[in-house]
């Protein structure tokens, strides 16, 4: 299959990747860039485990073709933490006990991070709505919801 050269910025790093036309963004991240934090749970846009930020918006990366992403900015779970400190929601999900098997965690963190970027003081219903496309089978969700509330508090306290 013909390969297409695309240029993307992934977690602030410029990347040049040759991808076949049918390759999804999820597969490109996992197979071409070894960013395996982005998980493949269904390849059908239903579970949210592959959520990444595409130009600042959370998307199911299994539903986006890599060739569509030429020139795009992408953030994966690997890009959430700073040099030596975790992003607030990474920190709070640890503390709240929102991680069990960890397979849904990357997608949840990206969705939560995106929510807090566009709405720093979300209500409980807004948090639930923002995460409704991220399935988790282990935790029962309550500690995850709590971690997002707590991250919002942390961020607003930090100004």
């Amino acid at each position: 299959m013909t390969l297409h050269e695309i240029h993307v910025t992934v977690n602030d790093e410029p990347e040049q990747v040759a991808v076949p036309a049918n390759m999804t963004l999820m597969r490109m991240l996992r197979e071409k860039l070894a960013l395996t934090g982005t998980k493949n749970g269904c390849s059908a846009g239903e579970c949210g485990a592959c959520t990444v930020l595409l130009n600042g918006e959370p998307v199911n990366s299994c539903m986006v073709l890599a060739v569509e992403c030429d020139g795009a900015r992408i953030v994966t779970v690997e890009g959430l933490a700073g040099e030596d400190r975790l992003a607030p929601v990474q920190e709070t999900i640890l503390r709240a006990g929102g991680v069990q098997c960890g397979f849904c965690t990357p997608g949840i963190l990206i969705s939560a991070h995106a929510l807090l970027e566009r709405n720093p003081t979300p209500s409980d219903d807004e948090i639930r709505e923002a995460l409704v496309g991220n399935l988790c089978r282990c935790t029962g969700y309550l500690p995850i919801l709590e971690s997002v509330r707590e991250a919002a508090r942390m961020q607003s306290a930090a100004g």
């Binding site: 395996t36 779970v77 990474q90």
Partner: peptide, 8 residues
């Protein structure tokens, strides 16, 4: 698991 480093 929160940094994407966990290997499955």
């Amino acid at each position: 698991k929160v940094t994407g480093a966990a290997i499955f």
